[in-house]
């Protein structure tokens, strides 16, 4: 519908009192503004020393009904996961992202844990993923779609467990945009100069207030969001 396109752009220009597109110098200015995106005002809330940034992330995430465990290194993750599943009375079959950063954990030492590394199906109850970044300001996790992280893992199963090395916790959303731009510049994955298809910023488990404004967890996405913070992401 190029007719619609020209009509709409023409109507915008007429309404703004212009006979054509913005002039060249203005266009150059606007292009420069996008080429080097400046940060706008950022709340000072997360402006803290590194250890307190982690604490802020944790308290913010818990404030929106996520649950948090903290371990020293990846070697402890399988056991903590098993204990969590037991505590919540959840099955020990999990579907896990094919993310190589999760390979460092010694999953074999939990023989009861059944792990599939593929796309989730309707009957999957628990997913395990990592998160490439997190945001202390609001206790938010950032997930990027890609070969090692199907986005449906973030939504389909009723319980989502996220293994998060603490050195990935940033202060603000802007840190996530910078990380993505860096990855694009580094030519990582098959980004080909593009954003990942899906970037999910996730702040707590799914909820709804649509029935009499009663806060309920687990509307369509996960009922439970459990974060395992890992102090050192070395295999140890």
């Amino acid at each position: 519908m190029t007719a619609g396109r020209d009509e709409i752009l023409g109507a915008i220009r007429r309404s703004l009192g212009r006979s054509g597109p913005v002039d060249d110098s203005r266009a150059a200015e606007l292009r420069a503004r996008m080429a080097k995106p400046a940060r706008n005002l950022i709340p000072a809330r997360a402006d803290l020393p590194p250890s307190e940034v982690i604490d802020l992330f944790r308290s913010q995430a818990e404030g929106v009904f996520a649950t948090v465990d903290r371990v020293a290194d990846m070697s402890e993750v399988p056991q903590v996961l098993t204990e969590y599943l037991k505590r919540e009375n959840l099955p020990s079959q999990v579907v896990m992202a094919p993310d190589p950063s999760l390979d460092q954990a010694p999953w074999d030492n939990q023989p009861l844990l059944e792990i599939r590394r593929c796309l989730p199906v309707e009957s999957d109850m628990v997913s395990v993923t990592s998160a490439p970044a997190a945001i202390a300001e609001t206790g938010t996790l950032a997930m990027f779609s890609g070969a090692d992280h199907p986005s449906t893992l973030n939504f389909l199963p009723e319980t989502h467990v996220v293994v998060l090395p603490v050195n990935r916790i940033g202060k603000n959303y802007e840190d996530v945009w910078d990380l993505i731009r860096q990855r694009i510049a580094d030519g990582e994955g098959d980004l080909n100069d593009l954003m990942p298809r899906t970037v999910n910023l996730i702040t707590g488990p799914s909820r709804s207030g649509d029935i009499e404004q009663t806060l309920l967890l687990g509307a369509h996405g996960p009922r439970r969001l459990h974060i395992i913070l890992v102090d050192s992401d070395d295999a140890a």
Binding site: S145, A147, S151, N192, P196, G204
Partner: peptide
């Protein structure tokens, strides 16, 4: 709603890529 941030903020760019398992 008075939330600091909504639960899901999703940024979608184009269709799934050749190596994307879903989307």
């Amino acid at each position: 709603t008075g939330q600091d941030f909504s639960v899901y903020t999703t940024v979608s760019t184009g269709p799934r890529r050749s190596t994307d398992p879903d989307g």
